[in-house]
């Protein structure tokens, strides 16, 4: 999944013929490379090499509790990953958690972006308050939501429901997946909002005025002009949020420990590797997770393209 740079130009530089202009171009190319390589090398060492090692581990039979048994296993780990029901259910959990959080935070983010793009008194303050959930440490958010907002007996959610006569819900024990989606949506709505707000502000005001002059109502203008314009921004928000949320770990480790349909791939891998000490199998989960990420990113983009180009939202 990575593309490496071509080799440096040392050889070419050895043949030092050519005009002075060519010479300076080359030396400036060499300088550019010298500026680029430290970052590139750091990135390769810290992320690519470990991934290659992960692939190697995934082909090995290796449990840390039985160091003597280590050996080449071929694709055995992948076979047992696919046979084991926990991979599929985990894939389902990942899709459910990521999918609902991404959709909810994009829809809410669009709503807030439109509301906060209007001119009104205190808009700056409203925007400041709105971006705060994104700045809050995810571990703190998970803890506060679990114990302060969603607690069955003393939580604010149940208190608020009680005000309108709805009986309390045991969020943390009965519907753990809802608690995870709630926290993730809360944290990622500001993120989606920021990107969509940037999109709204980049809109050509003349076109909007022309539409208004032509007698298009605000809803039609929004559906026919603003939404199509926002398309690329929605795509980016969805794509980035999906990729970040696919690997989400904090709220699951803190709030549910993988119970109630919240055992996502990253949490399953964590359990297999660092609780079960199954290095080979966990590495296979790691490789599968990377594949799923690539597939989701691709599918997410494709689907979005389709939805927008064939349906033309807002009719």
């Amino acid at each position: 999944m990575t593309v490496l740079m071509s080799a440096p130009t040392t050889r070419r530089r050895a043949r030092s013929a050519g005009s002075a202009a060519k010479q300076s171009r080359r030396s400036s190319l060499a300088v550019s490379r010298a500026m680029l390589w430290p970052a590139l090398a750091t990135s390769i060492v810290l992320t690519q090499i470990p991934f290659v090692v992960t692939i190697f581990y995934s082909l090995q039979n290796w449990n840390l509790l039985r160091p003597g048994d280590r050996g080449f296993a071929g694709l055995d780990n992948y076979v047992s990953v696919l046979r084991d029901g926990s991979f599929l259910s985990s894939l389902g959990a990942t899709v459910a958690v990521t999918g609902s959080s991404v959709v909810l935070s994009t829809v809410l983010g669009l709503l807030f972006a439109v509301l906060l793009d209007r001119n009104f008194r205190g808009r700056g303050l409203a925007r400041t308050l709105m971006i705060t959930p994104f700045l809050v440490m995810p571990a703190a958010a998970a803890l506060v939501w679990k114990w302060s907002i969603l607690d069955a007996t003393t939580g604010m959610a149940n208190w608020a429901l009680g005000l309108v006569g709805i009986p309390p819900v045991a969020w943390n024990t009965d519907v753990p997946i809802v608690t995870i989606i709630a926290v993730l949506t809360w944290q990622y709505t500001p993120f989606a909002m920021l990107i969509l707000l940037a999109g709204l502000q980049a809109q050509n005001k003349d076109v909007l005025e022309a539409a208004a002059v032509d007698g298009a109502g605000p809803l039609r203008t929004f559906g026919w002009i603003t939404l199509p314009h926002l398309r690329q921004y929605v795509e980016i928000a969805v794509l980035l949020a999906s990729i970040m949320l696919l690997q989400v770990f904090d709220p699951i480790a803190i709030m549910t420990r993988g119970t109630g349909g919240t055992k996502t791939l990253s949490y399953l891998l964590y359990e297999r590797a660092f609780v079960g000490l199954e290095v080979g199998e966990a590495a296979a989960y790691g490789v599968m997770t990377v594949l799923v990420t690539i597939v989701v990113a691709t599918v997410a983009l494709r689907t979005l393209f389709k939805v927008f180009s064939t349906e033309g939202l807002g009719r």
């Binding site: 593309v3 740079m5 590139l40 590797a273 790691g286 990377v290």
Partner: peptide
């Protein structure tokens, strides 16, 4: 090069954490 950088960000920690 740009694509490379952004792809490393999108790679799950799961890919590298065990080694």
């Amino acid at each position: 090069a740009l694509f490379f950088f952004i792809s490393t960000r999108f790679m799950p920690v799961a890919a590298s954490i065990i080694p």
